[in-house]
Design a protein around this nucleic acid. Structure first.
Length: 485
RNA sequence: GGCCCAAUAGUCUAGAGGCCUAGGACGCCGCCCUCUCAAGGCGGUAGCACGGGUUCGAAUCCCGUUUGGGCCA
């Protein structure tokens, strides 16, 4: 069986859009499932913002998600170079060939003329495609215009009748009438190739067997097929993935919040959660599993299970998944991943292994790494405010100060090294019993005194983590404050 | 505007003519656990866009409408 070769061809915009990440993932999963090659190609022929700098975040983003590639701009390969900007000579050669064989022709219309004619055509309700006026220019006329130094583009001499049928792996047969297609531009007058042209030349030269890309390229496919035919090349197989939409069913864009890999990373999403979620958008596990790792996805991936309808990106579900993966991490590993977030918030845990213990206390209470600094804030500072409602409910009442004082006193009998979860709890249970009240009546005011909050880890976990000194100090401070008011 | 694609609960999806009284997941609601909040367990809510066909039988096939999306830009 022929070796499968799949490419992912992003433009170096500096970040990886979530939809592109999904496309890359599906390409990669397919290649790996079939024991084929995954190739990275940078489509940087749009002059301007597209510089090499924009390419680095893309490579980093894919690697962060756990993907690797066999050929690419950073590591070369048998069909290099892997940047379109470095392949211009190849496009030129191919352009010349079509011209020589009469399958392409020079078009001397300027962009301004074309725009004006298109507007006119649309106003009169005619087809807005190119009117082919340069298609049959006499050779002498071409010579003359060329001699004048008139800039010209290269257009395909497309068939006027008939149809092109795209055999799409996910959509089946899709037919396009040639009458609807026009003599599209292959090479612009400044020498830059168009998307369709460069794509065909590269995919053929790089021996790509499967083109897996977003649905927005389905309409480009017949044009590319026409090009393969003009060159006499065998076309690859095509698979067009459904779009990813925002909740309002429009294209996912900046205004919908985070849309790039790096934004998700900065928010504290785990790559394993992101990649798992992405695998679920437009594809489903044959056994209906929803939580699985990359190895599992590779083992079961197939293009046949890709759905045809667009999917809406759901923040809730990926958050849940992220929480799931967060909870399954060993505390030390979670601490390692949390550290940059803690430092960014100005919290530097000392000694370093203390963070693992802290993080374990809130591990199933957060969904994102980015929530950890706040969830753990009171372990790093004692200048917090008391939650207003909690204050009213548990502290602003007669006897509250005394309650805290008696708690403090009871705890003070514990030696520093015995200030454990079990011992502090035993002390509290005993105290409550001797006072003839429920332990909860001690616990709630204490949590507020120690953390300023009404929610959080179990109180005795907090005490043990805080240590005797801080615990007693906060209890005393809170009681004193209540006495003053 | 032309062409193309799509349509199962709020969302992701299973479903390839009888296995469907439409299955799973997120969310939401309730209960249990419990010092709070989570997590976890249990239960519940909610869907085949509409209209015509084809067929003994349609979520599934065909046509149209509607709606969304894409490409030409």
């Amino acid at each position: 069986m022929e070796e499968v070769r799949v490419r992912f061809a992003p433009s170096p915009s500096g970040e990886v859009h979530i939809g592109n990440a999904r496309t890359a993932l599906f390409c990669w999963l397919f290649a790996r499932n079939r024991g084929g090659s995954f190739i990275l190609r940078i489509e940087d022929t749009d002059v301007g913002r597209n510089r090499e700098a924009g390419e680095v975040p893309i490579l980093e983003g894919l690697a962060w998600l756990g993907m690797d590639w066999d050929e690419g701009p950073d590591r070369g390969g048998p069909w290099e170079p892997y940047r379109q900007s470095e392949r211009l000579e190849l496009y030129r050669q191919h352009g010349r060939r079509l011209l020589a064989e009469g399958k392409g022709y020079p078009c001397f219309c300027s962009p301004e003329e074309l725009a004006a004619r298109r507007a006119g055509a649309q106003r009169e309700g005619r087809s807005s495609g190119y009117d082919r006026r340069c298609r049959d220019l006499a050779e002498s006329e071409r010579q003359r215009l060329r001699a004048e130094g008139r800039p010209h583009a290269l257009r395909l001499r497309a068939p006027l009748e008939g149809e092109t049928v795209v055999q799409d792996i996910v959509r089946g047969e899709v037919r396009f009438l040639h009458a609807e297609l026009d003599d599209f531009v292959l090479v612009r007058s400044d020498g830059r190739p168009t998307y369709n042209f460069a794509c065909v030349v590269d995919d053929h030269l790089m021996r790509i067997t499967h083109v897996i890309r977003g649905e927005e390229h389905l309409s480009n496919t017949p044009k590319q097929l026409l090009l393969y035919e003009a060159f006499g090349y065998e076309p690859p197989r095509f698979a067009h993935l459904p779009m990813i939409l925002a909740l309002d069913r429009t294209k996912l864009s900046k205004r919908h919040g985070a849309t790039s890999l790096q934004q998700y990373r900065d928010l504290g999403y785990l790559p394993e959660a992101l990649v798992n979620y992405l695998a679920l958008l437009g594809w489903s596990h044959p056994e209906g599993k929803e939580v699985f790792d990359l190895q599992e996805a590779i083992a079961h991936f197939s293009l046949e299970r890709i759905s045809r309808s667009p999917s809406v990106y759901d923040d809730r579900k990926i958050e849940w998944l992220n929480g799931h993966y967060l909870r399954s991490l060993p505390a030390a590993e979670l601490a390692r991943r949390a550290l940059p977030f803690m430092r960014a918030a100005g919290y530097d845990p000392q000694p370093p292994d203390r963070l693992a213990k802290l993080v374990a206390a809130v591990q199933d209470r957060v969904k994102l790494l980015g929530e950890l600094p706040d969830a753990l804030a009171y372990f790093f500072r004692d200048d917090f405010h008391y939650d207003e409602e909690g204050y009213r409910k548990y502290l602003a009442r007669p006897g509250a100060a005394e309650l805290l004082e008696r708690s403090r006193e009871a705890l003070s009998s514990l030696p520093e090294q015995d200030f454990t979860v079990e011992n502090t709890e035993a002390v509290y249970r005993r105290l409550a019993e001797s006072m003839g009240i429920r332990a909860a009546e001690l616990i709630h005011p204490t949590r507020l005194a120690l953390t300023g909050r009404t929610v959080g880890p179990g109180l005795f976990d907090i005490m043990a983590l805080l240590g005797k000194e801080a615990t007693l100090a906060r209890l005393g401070r809170c009681a004193a404050g209540l006495r003053r008011d």
